[in-house]
Nucleic acid binder design. Structure first.
Lengths: 368, 368
DNA sequence: CCACTTACGGGTAACGCTATCAATGTGCCG
DNA sequence: CGGCACATTGATAGCGTTACCCGTAAGTGG
């Protein structure tokens, strides 16, 4: 082989890379006559720095108009800020709004979101969590219905990742959550139907193992109890949040000897199914039957008549959730200790649309 | 002074800093049997990499679920690409799938996505683009229906940003696009109805100023022409892609003296409306009337019977779109010259579900 | 005045990636 | 068949910051 000088040029010449004009921590350090480390300490508000030194550094910072490079900072280990988002049911409208919120907040706080879809099996759910952990997630947010999954929550607890569940009723369990007050919303809807004169109201329950279902049912029954109206047990039928289950439930309700004047479904899909069944039976909505839903998903406005329903501010909830995880991650890192989970309630709203009217032959609704 | 070993321990042991589980470019490189540099090249879509090598790297990336650390990337000098995503119509299911695709690809290539919702007015659309430009977007992707908007496209041309439109039929205009072949898909669907024995097929057109509408209509009529069947002009009615417009259109079709045996709606919402009208008129679907849609949005499976329809791989299309913008941005930067726009076709599929059957009294469908 | 803790500040090595350039391999021309 | 252009890949050196580990100076008790 011939002579080779694999000497990497003159090591003194630092002029290899491009020059970005930004002032660095090194510039500040030189000007203040200290080491970069000390500057870092001052900038980050750590304590063990003599006031005089601190002042000198601060002066230099100001003079040079220095501001730390966030990329370098996060690279150096300050905060990783990659958070995972697991979803299972591509429940279209919900997921979309949720993503919009999460993304928006993510770009604002410059955290990276990692999406992970998972099958609704135990193995699938646990696998998704592990995959996220392996990818370096520092926290996780869970939209429904995963936020109710034992497998997911359990696996997350094992991994010790800060977790925020959205729209679950189940609070505690080591995860924070962001939700509306399903119970109160359901009561309010029921009372609204009361004020219109409805007394025979059919209720289609949600999936029995989701907490929100239970809350919504409780709100409904307690409204009856508090108003002193009698609630016929035959008016409560089981549903599972799917359109299909809504068809069956509505069929049951509308073939009773004494049919209801209104149907309150635990979500919009089932409410839409109820409208469809009513139409097939020749009933006018809302003339012969009022129908209300819950969630204000897109189907609520994609059918006719449009559904009166409860709106959850999904986008805002996702933003809050993301915010909470980021905070949790920060605490987790500094203190290392157990993060205490929080329960964040956001406000819902009752959206009045065309699927509701006073029952036929009823007295004019009482003024509110 | 006493003995001091300021030797930094065993230099082989890299175990000093914290362990973030994240997989790094080094892991990928090792697994693929190449250098980190090559991985970087592949991930960033540079050209001078042999296809075999590229494939190996891609496989490793997938296997390890690798996603680049944006902090490190931007620190190393490549400024993080920020790309804008403007949407107007929160058409739930579509947007959701679209976002999933875009986000997924975004985390893979570690570009930042900036969401921007806009009103459907000229000012709103132009404002959204300007806002994105002001925020430092380096490129834009447009889901429908914005990809058809003159205002948006015009404003983008002015700003000179690389743009990729998804699911538009309008190609050229300085923007690249990703789409399916609406014309061919529509023909295929029509021919499918032919094979089942349908000859009297009602067609509900889409919004007249969207290119996809026109393509779909052309596919329908040309299938008739090629098969040599006569197409009754009364069978073609105007719709506007909304559920509401579908109700009116279906009403028109089903009150003709000679009703169709099948209805082909230009999208699922209108097809769902047709099913609803049929039910209200006491017609069985698919016994008395077959109904097919287009797009395979969530409503297709949220009604009963579920709709036979054309599925667009929305998620994949979003991924491709993002990829194209990123490449365009890179070219834009390197060459500075005009990026030539590309027309990327992806494959659709005909999804057969329960809303279709042979017409009553028709001969058994010909074997395919 | 000595042993011993504590406050302060510095040196060094990553963090994960890409720019740059050197070192191969490949093909074509004279 | 030398050699030169070009395609492909690897090695090295940072990007700006903080974590970790040690010195040194200053305070403390006996």
């Amino acid at each position: 082989m011939m002579a080779r000088t694999s000497e990497p040029l003159d090591p003194k010449r630092p002029s290899s890379r491009k020059q970005r004009g930004a002032t660095t921590i090194l510039d500040v350090a030189r000007r203040a006559g200290v080491s970069p480390m000390t500057v870092s300490r001052v900038v980050n508000g750590e304590k063990n720095v003599r006031p005089a030194t601190r002042a000198a550094v601060l002066a230099a910072v100001k003079a040079l108009n220095y501001s730390p490079n966030p990329a370098a900072r996060s690279l150096a280990g300050a905060e990783a800020a990659r958070i995972g988002l697991i979803y299972s049911n591509p429940s279209a409208s919900y997921l979309s709004e949720f993503l919009v919120g999460a993304l928006d907040e993510a770009s604002r706080t410059s955290v990276q979101i990692m999406l992970e879809k998972c099958e609704a099996t135990s193995a699938g759910e646990r696998g998704a969590v592990r995959k996220l952990v392996a990818s370096g997630a520092a926290g996780v947010i869970l939209p429904p219905p995963l936020c109710e999954s034992h497998d997911v929550l359990d696996e997350l607890r094992i991994s010790g990742l800060p977790t925020v569940a959205v729209a679950t009723g189940r609070f505690g369990k080591g995860a924070s959550c962001v939700r509306i007050n399903d119970y109160a919303a359901s009561r309010e809807m029921t009372n609204y139907l009361f004020t219109l004169g409805h007394r025979r109201i059919g209720f289609i329950k949600g999936h029995p193992n989701q907490t929100a279902s239970i809350e919504r049912e409780k709100g409904f029954t307690s409204a009856f109890a508090d108003a002193g109206f009698k609630l016929d047990p035959a008016m409560m039928v089981q549903g599972y949040f799917s359109y299909r289950s809504g068809l069956d439930a509505a069929e049951t309700l509308l073939t009773l000897k004494q049919v209801p004047t209104a149907i309150f479904a635990s979500n919009d899909d089932m409410a839409a199914a109820a409208v469809s069944v009513a139409h097939r039976k020749g009933l006018d909505v809302p003339g012969d039957l009022s129908v209300v839903g819950f969630d204000d998903t897109s189907i609520a406005t994609n059918i006719w008549p449009e559904l009166t329903t409860i709106r959850q501010p999904i986008t805002a909830m996702a933003e809050v959730a993301l915010d909470l995880v980021v905070q949790a991650i920060r605490n987790h890192k500094r203190s290392g200790g157990e993060a205490k989970s929080v329960d964040h309630l956001v406000t819902y709203s009752l959206i009045k649309r065309g699927s509701v009217a006073s029952p036929k032959g009823a007295p004019k609704p009482a003024a509110e």
